[in-house]
Amino acid sequence: MDRIPILRMGDLLLVTIQFELHDRLVMAMQDDLMRLIAETGARGVLIDISALDLVDSFTARVIANTAEMARMMDAETVLVGMQPAVAITLVELGLSFHGVYTALNAEKGVQLLKKIRGPLTGESSDDTAGE
């Protein structure tokens, strides 16, 4: 079965969704992500959906649940790159991503994670501030 590739960068897991989603594929991503968080002790997850021209209620719910599960394992999730038409549609559907951070692009997503989590490993910083 197809899998959505997940990239590891230090304390971060990067998921880039590049093709149209089957329900199975979304569920598989959730499983893979949870397993990788457990294996790597990742503290942040970045899900890039800039290539998606459609997010329906099923996909939205799985993403929201994934973020909640990740938080229970001490990893914060940032959803990045949502297209305007997708955002308008989700608002009209009445869906919100409670507890999911959002950012305009991957770069801003990483910045946001640093702000929330403090410096991530692999970053050149002696600053120990965090929450």
């Binding site: 949502m82 308008i88 608002v91 919100s96 692009n105």
Partner: peptide, 12 residues
């Protein structure tokens, strides 16, 4: 309200 909600989903 919807505009603000959509902007937030996008990260702004």
């Amino acid at each position: 309200l919807k505009t603000v909600a959509a902007a937030r989903l996008m990260g702004a």
